[in-house]
Design a binder for these strands. Structure first.
Length: 567
RNA sequence: CGGGGAGUAGCGCAGUCCGGUUAGCGCGCCUGGUUCGGGACCAGGAGGUCAGGGGUUCAAAUCCCCUCUCCCCGACCA
């Protein structure tokens, strides 16, 4: 391919909208353009990369027996009502009406659609298991799109769904996906981590995420450098960095007018935050609970949701007053009217401070293990910087990361709600056991750009680079160029030849920016029968005779591909 | 949804506070010439509803009101 024949609008400067370097590079290198917040156009180079990524995904999905399909982007309200997600997706779902006024969604994910297909078509255990996948555009009306391809409102995703008849079967499907994902990301040249994750809105039993470390990532990873424990902060278990609080156990009610927050109480009563029982009213559906954590921690809605088996939210101030008859800030666990879920470390407090459950009063000397009735003792606090590893007590590391893949064991949530049942060997009707597995295609590109960028541009892994070879041609000897091009074609090397009438500097700068991993320069050395090979990432220059150059390049390319593809 | 910032040529920006020639600069673009191993040089040139709408004024990029778009931060932790 000739540079002139491709639309590659490179930019000299970083567009102002680029909020992270990798995104800035993709814009500058002419891979993508933004149409609107969180909505992108893929230009020739970007599309070529995306297609290569998709093909790797396809190959690996097919290798585990997954079958490619294509579902619809539009979906009717009715199936979302069946799963009760028309509500729970809330504003994140793009909705529209057809001419008759019926409601539709631009699908943010496809569990409902798969379940619809499965319940209509899968009748017998003989038809199971199945793994179905597609590469499709998803739509999510993100409250705040950002980072270019990081968080989009319209984005391409590979999503697959496993249908099994047993829980053991689900475990196998999950493991298959995990292995396939590892191969996919390795072949795409990414350095990644597999971590425990939360299943959030999807619902389900177990889930794991594939993460690429990056300071621009939106997810927080918790990692133990010693034992290798890795988890998303949303589910991370940890040990508090300080000892459990022991205070005076004599109870004393203290007048604390207007003193509400932990920091205010801490200062006013001269008690450290870890000696304060922070009581927060949460609602699981209609049902209220009091969640208690140590004052130096935050409660974690996700963990609470999994403890209670349903989505919970923190009550509004008015709801607090209506339910407990006291304003937020003085809520306390003594004589609580609602069941108490206490964090395992708040439970260890002896003689701590809590709200008195009475306006403008706090109470000292509270010991959870003696003073009030407890519904559950659980880990419901958010891990924080400074905490120690639950397993080995090493200090945990907190790092930002980009989520590139997520695998879930869904279980029977969708099949039961939507009626996807099969008949087993014994003639019994059973819900299909499902799994759901996603990969963000665009995020792979962005992550690669992030991982392999330098001050001049990027150096994409050869497997996902739009081309394998970039030729900077100074047009000094047409015959040689033509001959080399012929040879490249014969050897099936994907090349981009820059024979534009531009100054050398411009061509080199563009080549560095675009990031094709192998380059040859056809310049002055041609007269001596020599051309230069330059390895973009390694920044190595090799001089080779014109006679051997194509063979040498082929060798390098094959070597690079082998390193990534051999698993 | 709340708060902050921004919108001026394809891109990056100045000008706006304090209204007043023909709205500038760098890069890019076009023409001609010279160059040609790291974003070349010379000469000439094109390109603007100053986000949109309304208002104030003799006069608005500049002041006021409304709308749209984009970016950043936050979103109930008592």
């Amino acid at each position: 391919m000739h540079f002139k024949d491709l639309f590659i609008p490179t930019l000299r400067e970083i567009p102002r909208e680029a909020d992270n370097p990798a995104y800035g590079l993709l814009l500058r290198a002419g891979y993508i353009r933004k149409l609107s917040s969180g909505i992108f156009l893929f230009l020739p180079l970007g599309l070529k990369s995306i297609k290569k990524i998709e093909n790797i995904v396809r190959e690996e999905m097919n290798s585990i027996g997954a079958q490619e399909m294509l579902f619809s982007a539009l979906s009717p309200k009715s199936i979302w009502e069946e799963s009760e997600r028309w509500e729970s997706f809330g504003n994140d779902m793009f909705r529209l009406k057809d001419r008759k006024g019926s409601d539709f969604a631009l699908s943010p994910t496809h569990e409902e659609i798969v379940t619809f297909l499965a319940r209509n078509e899968i009748k017998s255990f003989r038809e199971l298991p199945q793994i179905w996948y597609q590469i499709q555009t998803k739509f999510r009306d993100e409250p705040r799109p950002r980072g270019g391809l990081l968080r989009c409102r319209e984005f391409s995703m590979k999503d697959s769904y496993s249908l099994d008849m047993t829980w053991e079967g689900l475990d196998i499907s999950y493991e298959k996906h995990k292995k396939a994902y590892e191969r996919i990301f390795k072949r795409c040249g990414l350095k990644f981590h597999f971590v425990q994750a939360s299943s959030g809105l999807m619902g389900g039993k177990e889930s794991g995420e594939f993460m690429v470390l990056s300071e621009y990532g939106e997810d927080k990873l918790v990692m133990c450098p010693k034992c290798g424990y890795k988890a998303n902060k949303e589910v991370a278990k940890s040990l508090p960095f300080n000892e459990s609080y022991k205070g005076e156990e004599k109870k004393e009610k203290i007048y604390t007018p207007g003193i509400k927050s932990v920091s205010e109480v801490s200062e006013f009563l001269k008690v450290p935050p870890e000696g304060i029982l922070k009581s927060i009213l949460i609602l699981a559906g209609e049902k209220p609970y009091l969640a208690i954590v140590r004052g130096d921690y935050e409660i974690h809605i996700g963990k609470l949701s999994s403890v209670l088996g349903q989505t919970v939210r923190i009550a509004e101030p008015e709801e607090v007053e209506n339910t407990l008859g006291v304003s937020a800030g003085f809520v306390g666990p003594l004589n609580s009217k609602v069941p108490i879920i206490i964090d395992e470390y708040a439970y260890k407090i002896e003689g701590g401070v809590a709200g008195a459950g009475e306006e403008d009063y706090h109470i000292k000397g509270v010991t959870p293990s003696k003073d009030f009735e407890i519904f559950k003792i659980e880990d419901i606090r958010e891990a924080k910087e400074g905490d120690y590893c639950y397993n080995c007590k090493e200090k945990l590391e907190f790092k930002n990361a980009i989520e590139i893949g997520h695998i879930f064991k869904l279980g029977t949530r969708y099949s039961e709600k939507m009626g996807a049942y099969f008949t087993d060997k014994n003639g019994e009707k059973k819900p299909i056991i499902m799994g759901s597995y996603g990969i963000g295609i665009g995020r792979i590109l962005l992550s690669a750009a992030e991982l392999y960028r330098d001050e001049n541009g990027m150096a994409l892994p050869i497997t996902i680079s739009p081309f394998e070879l970039h030729i900077v041609d100074f047009n000094l000897d047409k015959d040689t160029s033509i001959r080399i091009e012929k040879e490249l074609k014969a050897k099936e090397i994907e090349y981009l030849i820059d024979d534009r009438d531009e100054s050398p500097g411009v061509k080199f700068k563009d080549a560095d920016l675009i990031g094709i991993p192998v380059r040859i320069t056809l310049g002055k050395n041609i007269q001596k029968g020599i051309a230069d090979i330059y390895l973009r990432k390694e920044k190595e220059k090799i001089e080779v005779t014109l006679k051997d150059i194509v063979n040498k390049v082929k060798e390098i390319i094959e070597e690079k591909k082998k390193n990534l593809n051999d698993i």
